[in-house]
Simulated assay, not measured.
Amino acid sequence: MTQQLAQRTGVATLKGNPITLVGPELKAGDTAPDFKVNKDLMTEVTLKDYAGKVKLISVVPSLDTGVCDAQTRRFNEEAANLGDNVVVLTISVDLPFAQSRWCGAAGIDKVITLSDYKTKSFGQAYGVLINELQLDMRSIFVIDQNDKITYVEYLKEMTEHPNYEAAIAAVKALV
């Protein structure tokens, strides 16, 4: 029997319209839940693949939208100054083919794009899966070398930008 995941209503909108997020609301201090996402069509990765690193996880609904594009480009620029002990992951439900194509066209070379398309494991574990759209809600997670969450930002409105400065400051505080 599968466990019913929590559904959170009244916490997020898309252009002002309410959406339902599936999964728990994580907070700073929580242990980061494991997940399984795709690096490419056949290669799956988990949180443990980035063990010992500070992880900035930038979650976007789709790289082919303006805010998601800008968010990923911004973190790609910032990643160059964060050092070798930091990995910046962008997670969306875009197919790995689309992510690869987008990265090539955008010149993204520091951020690792990962796809939650197959099982939505990340979206459910981190409480960002949008029930109505089966996309992951824009959010930011900073996770330390010991897999403790130190910073969380769940966006209230999907079309808004995250607080880039606060996320980068949270990463820098760990390195």
Rank of each mutant, 00 (worst) to 15 (best):
M158G: 06
R138M: 04
P24D: 15
D64P: 11
L129K: 15
I149F: 00
V152K: 03
A80V: 10
D34A: 12
Y126W: 05
W102N: 09
V88M: 02
P96I: 07
E160F: 11
D30C: 09
I168V: 14
V37K: 05
L41A: 10
S139H: 03
K172E: 06
V88A: 02
A70G: 08
M42W: 07
K53C: 12
A79V: 03
D64V: 08
I143C: 06
E77C: 04
I143K: 03
C68I: 08
D109G: 15
N131I: 01
F141A: 04
I112E: 15
D147M: 07
P162K: 01
A173K: 07
V54I: 15
A79Q: 01
R138N: 04
V87L: 03
I57P: 05
A166V: 15
E157T: 01
Y154N: 00
R8D: 13
L5C: 11
I149W: 00
R8Y: 07
G29W: 12
Q4T: 14
V142D: 03
Y164W: 02
E165R: 03
L82P: 00
Y50F: 15
T13V: 12
D144E: 10
F141D: 04
D49S: 13
A105W: 04
Q3H: 10
N163A: 09
E78V: 05
